[in-house]
Design a protein around this nucleic acid. Structure first.
Length: 484
RNA sequence: GGCGGCUUAGCCAAGUGGUAAGGCGACGGUCUGCAAAACCGUUAUUCGGCGGUUCAAAUCCGCCAGCCGCCUCCA
């Protein structure tokens, strides 16, 4: 077996063979900090979070780097339009990024380098490229010479001739060739700058990732990731710069995630349908959002809609409910010395799913199958010890299931009681009903049922239902929850 | 114009040569005063269409149709 990864570089699923056994270097392109993060950022960050968690789970020592682009045209423009200092603006959005990602339960990478903290690394790298004839200075700018790097286009599958004839490449007097791109940009008046051998200026976009990844991971490392849109030109240019400078292969495996659509439409500022993580989390449990993001394969497009979020939410509740049932079964002193298939090979099945190019939908399916097995035992046993597996077996299954859910997928981190309690609280607030009021009606209904006054009991239930409150009568009394 | 990808049930979605996971929804049953939840069963003889290769194809090849992405800042 062993892990297989779809590599954009070869367009094939390949066995994962680390550069240095047991020691993994992973670099993921982070965000440009000029605005709040949206659902698309969430998909990318959560995917690589899960990949990172999985590699760690399998016992690998992972050095995970995710950068912040904190100097860039967009940042400067935004700062100017807000009348805010660009540095302050960038720092502000770094903080906001962390607020959102912490809320989503994303693990912090080992290092989160910022471009502006690596200006000297960038300058050294550019100087090396000039020395080796891969870059040239032009009026304070430094450009990378694409024709000097013979394998340019190998990641995105583009031919340089096609790119030129495409006529969509930027025309710039300073370029010797239309495909050349900026490594260093001379500062215009009023723009932030750093001094360099070529005069005051700032780094181009692509060079920072080459400089920072090499700084922390060396010239050759294992995994480089990012959104599918970064494949070209960003990652293509990174490869060219890095390999031209070092003469060694750059990243070995390239992983790219697909886009999130909003109600079947492309998300874009012009359509005005950009969804911020912050706004989504106002009405959606963070674990629901994670479940949603992991419910389709990472390279496929993912459609965000009310329906898809509702499905994820219902699914999460189902998993928590099963967890609750499992805990109850553990307390039943069961006497069976075996577990159903769906609960006994969890470790192996999860690994098989994730080893297959991080197949998270399959991993989730395993959780749902386990849930059904738990519920089946719960209902079919009717509390009969002779039909329930022993507590130690159930505990082992629960720990395995939770271990994967929490450590790899980043869900089911609450106790089922807390989860249901919180859902009730926030739901009641959203509906504008006090919990006391609900409890009072529930008590009235319980009295009515005791008196076998079912007409009144049903009236109360219908009344609550019309408010969006659902009642479930169980052996231990009636409970309520907010209807989805 | 160039390059690449996708098309699986009412919906979402796994599955890359051996006879269609999982979820949501719907319907029938069990349970319940009735419900809800849960469980059981049913819901794709078939994987966009047409050909081909093979003992065997959703999976490989060819053609056609539809959808999408990148080539420009973008996760």
């Amino acid at each position: 077996m062993g892990l297989k990864i779809y590599n954009t570089l070869t367009r094939k699923k390949e066995p994962f063979v680390p550069v240095n056994p047991g020691k993994i270097g992973m670099y993921v392109c982070g965000v440009t900090v000029y605005d709040m993060c949206h659902i698309g950022h969430a998909r990318s960050v959560v995917l690589f979070d899960v990949i990172y968690r999985y590699l760690v789970k399998t016992g690998l020592d992972v050095n995970y780097i995710r950068n912040f682009t904190d100097i860039d045209d967009k940042i400067i423009n935004r700062a100017n339009s807000l009348g805010e200092d660009w540095k302050q603006l960038a720092e502000r959005y770094v903080k906001e990024f962390h607020v959102d990602m912490d809320a989503l339960g994303v693990k912090r990478p080992n290092i989160e380098p910022k471009a502006t903290d690596h200006i000297q690394d960038i300058i050294s790298l550019i100087a090396a490229l000039i020395d080796t004839g891969h870059a040239y200075e032009a009026n304070g700018d430094v450009m990378f010479s694409v024709t000097s790097f013979s394998t340019y286009g190998k990641l995105s599958g583009k031919k340089t001739e096609d790119l030129v004839s495409g006529a969509r490449v930027e025309v710039d007097e300073k370029k010797k060739d239309p495909l050349d791109f900026a490594l260093w940009k001379a500062a215009k008046i009023g723009e932030p700058f750093w001094n360099s051998p070529w005069g005051p200026g700032r780094p181009g976009w692509h060079i920072e990732c080459s400089a920072m990844s090499m700084r922390y991971l060396g010239p050759t490392f294992d995994i480089h990731g990012g959104g599918a849109d970064l494949t070209f030109p960003h990652h293509e240019n990174e490869i060219a710069q890095s390999e031209a400078a070092t003469g060694e292969p750059f990243a070995k495996y390239w992983i790219h995630n697909g886009f999130v659509n909003i109600r079947s439409e492309k998300m874009s500022k012009s359509l005005g349908n950009v969804l911020n993580i912050r706004d989504i989390l106002k009405e959606t449990h963070p674990e629901t959002l994670r479940l949603f993001l992991l419910s389709s394969h990472y390279r496929s497009p993912l459609d965000f809609s009310d329906t898809s979020i509702k499905e994820a939410s219902v699914g999460l509740e189902r998993l928590y409910a099963a967890l609750s049932s499992l805990e109850e079964l553990e307390r039943s002193d069961g006497e069976i010395s075996s577990l159903p298939e769906e609960l006994s090979n969890l470790e192996k099945r999860f690994r098989e799913a994730m080893d297959d190019d991080f197949n998270t939908p399959k991993g989730l399916a395993i959780m749902f199958e386990a849930s059904r097995a738990i519920n089946r035992i719960h209902t079919e046993s009717g509390g009969n010890k002779e039909k329930i597996p022993s507590p130690d077996l159930l505990e082992k299954a629960r720990k395995e299931l939770l271990g994967w859910a929490q450590d790899v997928f980043g869900i089911l981190n609450e106790t089922s009681q807390d989860f249901l309690e919180r859902a009730r609280k926030s739901g009641a607030i959203e509906l504008g009903i006090s919990e006391d009021e609900i409890r009072e009606l529930l008590d009235q209904r319980t009295e009515a049922r005791k008196a076998r006054n079912f007409k009144l009991a049903d009236e109360i239930r219908d009344k609550l239902l019309s408010w969006g409150i659902l009642i479930e009568d169980g052996p231990k009394g009636s409970i309520w929850r907010v209807k989805e």
